[in-house]
Design a protein around this nucleic acid. Sequence first.
DNA 1: ACATGCCGACCGTCTGGACGGTATCATGAC
DNA 2: GTCATGATACCGTCCAGACGGTCGGCATGT
Lengths: 190, 190
Amino acid sequence: MILDKQAAAALTRGRLIDAALSILEGGVQHLTLDAVAKKAAVSKGGLLHHFPSKEALIEAVIRHLLGLFNACVQQQYDSDPDPNPRGRWLRAYARASFTDFDIPMQALATLVPFVHEHPPLNDAITQDAAVWSERLENDGVSPVRAAIIRMACDEYWTEHAIFGESRYPAEALLTDVLTLIAQGANGDDH
Amino acid sequence: MILDKQAAAALTRGRLIDAALSILEGGVQHLTLDAVAKKAAVSKGGLLHHFPSKEALIEAVIRHLLGLFNACVQQQYDSDPDPNPRGRWLRAYARASFTDFDIPMQALATLVPFVHEHPPLNDAITQDAAVWSERLENDGVSPVRAAIIRMACDEYWTEHAIFGESRYPAEALLTDVLTLIAQGANGDDH
DNA sequence: ACATGCCGACCGTCTGGACGGTATCATGAC
DNA sequence: GTCATGATACCGTCCAGACGGTCGGCATGT
């Protein structure tokens, strides 16, 4: 059965990505090919068969994470209860940032130093960031204000990566961010 | 001359820290003992004479950076033109974050993964962060709002570390952040 | 004589990746 | 139907380089 083999291979790929992710939560330093292979119950050769280099593996991890997050924001966007079209993307972005802890975006934060050295990875992230920047800044709220709100959301992940549990209740932060967005979306921000 | 020798040693220490800092701007991966020693025109043995381990060196760098930044915020605090005492620390923090590019705080952002593995370093940063969190959240502005503003400021450094030049004009960001602070400091934030 | 500042060769370990296998399965010739 | 061929998935050893840190030594100043 040709499908069996391909399906098994895809499954192995998934296991490798998941293994890399779970290792990343403990810090980039532990992300070695051996560790990932071991955690995924695959040999090193097997790992390098699917991802010919560490860079390739990390790129897959990054795309996986970005995909998850984007899908998550999209879902929040689709189910937004607020009838005001202005600030809709911002609301979705904030909700995704402060409520969806299933997605280990902290892992992305810890990858920064590695990404900095590998242009292809940098491009992947930069492109995604550019898309969001543009979308959020044309959301009916002043672009600068939108940028500030996005930065606060993103910082939340970073601090999560550094300090582990956040020192602030995510709920309160989300509520206040939504208030800020509402202000901006009503044009009464000055 | 006893002072000559001690002074020379202190100078060497300073050169080592500066070297580490300038290397850090190119990414953590390049921060190796050999590289730092070479850049500071000191032998590896000499480096390890002053900082007995890599961790010790990085701790010195971190304290150096935190000291610079804190002094910088303090200066902004002292020279704040706004008579309103509420939000004074927040204004100072924001001004320091968006205008003082002399301090390579991006370097601190890139250190995150290393810090994550070394509790002493983590403590140094965490303590400093805790001091600022408390100070900013008791500044006459709603604590949650203050946290959001601080997070936006901090994210600015991080993005600087990732993307190099910021994609936003720092001036505009600062202006808008100050507006937000003024809102909060007047109690008309809801 | 002794401490301090500094030197630079050396060592052990870790890590990314190369490489030469093996096993399974699909395909096409006969 | 079967056998050669080749592709795909995976294995596990080995190596070269990099890196943190040790150590014995030297020079200078007290």
